[in-house]
């Protein structure tokens, strides 16, 4: 981290994910920013909208032997809780119009240090109105 960085600046930052994984590199490289960004102690959330919901689908498999030969980076989403990234907003309408429900998504959780390390879900299903409200509060939005 740079020495120039002002101490104590905490911004509300959202990573807006609207693209499917593998077909383009945006999902993977967005995740790389999220992981690096975790060290900056900001108020971070992720939003999965439109094809972005495909990023956190269960059952992704890209094995080198029989698959597409690319790195399966989906396990990284499961590690986000360990990086204190615990707010993953998923727009219900985006799931529904793709014939999906919350059951089709990975089980993403974090351990709440304020609640005796109880395991809690990181995924927050929101309606478009609720998501619009959350987006409206953001000071910085990273879109890739």
């Amino acid at each position: 981290m740079s020495e120039e960085l002002q101490e104590g600046v905490v911004k509300k930052m959202m990573y807006l994910n609207r693209k499917a994984p593998y077909g383009t590199v945006y999902a993977l490289e967005s995740l790389e920013v999220v992981l690096i960004g975790a060290a900056f102690d900001q108020d971070v959330s992720l939003a999965f909208v439109d094809d972005g919901v495909y990023q956190i689908l269960n059952g992704q498999n890209t094995t080198k032997d029989s698959g597409i030969g690319m790195k399966d980076f989906s396990p990284t989403y499961k590690a986000l809780g360990d990086y204190d990234i615990t707010k993953l907003y998923v727009e219900k309408e985006s799931l529904e119009e793709r014939g999906l429900s919350a059951d089709d998504l990975m089980d993403l959780v974090y351990e709440d240090e304020d609640d005796d390390w109880a395991e809690k879900p990181s995924i927050i299903l929101v309606s478009r109105e609720e998501l619009a409200d959350v987006m409206d509060e953001q000071e910085v939005v990273f879109s890739f």
């Binding site: 807006l16 609207r18 987006m135 953001q138 000071e139 910085v140 939005v141 879109s143 890739f144």
Partner: peptide, 8 residues
């Protein structure tokens, strides 16, 4: 405006 959101 307070922030910019790009719909890419």
């Amino acid at each position: 405006n307070d922030s910019v959101q790009a719909w890419l």
